[in-house]
Amino acid sequence: MRVEYINPFVESAFNVMKEVLQGDIKRGELYLKATSMPVMGVAAIVGLAGDVEGRVLFDMEKVTALRIASAMNGEELKSLDDLAKATITELANMITAQAVTKLHELGFRFDLTPPAIFTGDNMEISNQNVEALIVPMETGHGKVEINVAIRERA
């Protein structure tokens, strides 16, 4: 993944989470991961198009998703219902959109496709061995892994 894409994603993840969760957000060490990826239980995906092709995946455990959705709604959600799912989807959307805006300012043309959310145990997302950048975020509600796979249109 191009070096220029990394910071916009890291920064917007940090900024949006800090704004909507109002807690202490810590970023872990970035690393690369290949092959199919086991998912922690809840995964929100935003697709990217334009000069590039790719996707951003927000991966977290169910309990983390519930806690984050509860915090964002200002009420305690008991189960991962439609509202909770919509909330996590929106978080994914906001982070990706803000990153894309920064990339626009740097002269890269990216478009977003509407987000989707998947839940379940022992999920695995197979992606033909596409390499992804992992941005681990510690939110105070639990860990969220942002998994960014972008490649240039050749």
Binding site: M1, R2, V3, I6, L32, A34, Q128, V130, L133
Partner: peptide, 15 residues
Amino acid sequence: IYFEFHDVINNNPIP
């Protein structure tokens, strides 16, 4: 030049 953070032991999507 496209500078990429990439590990060559992963898939190499190179033209």
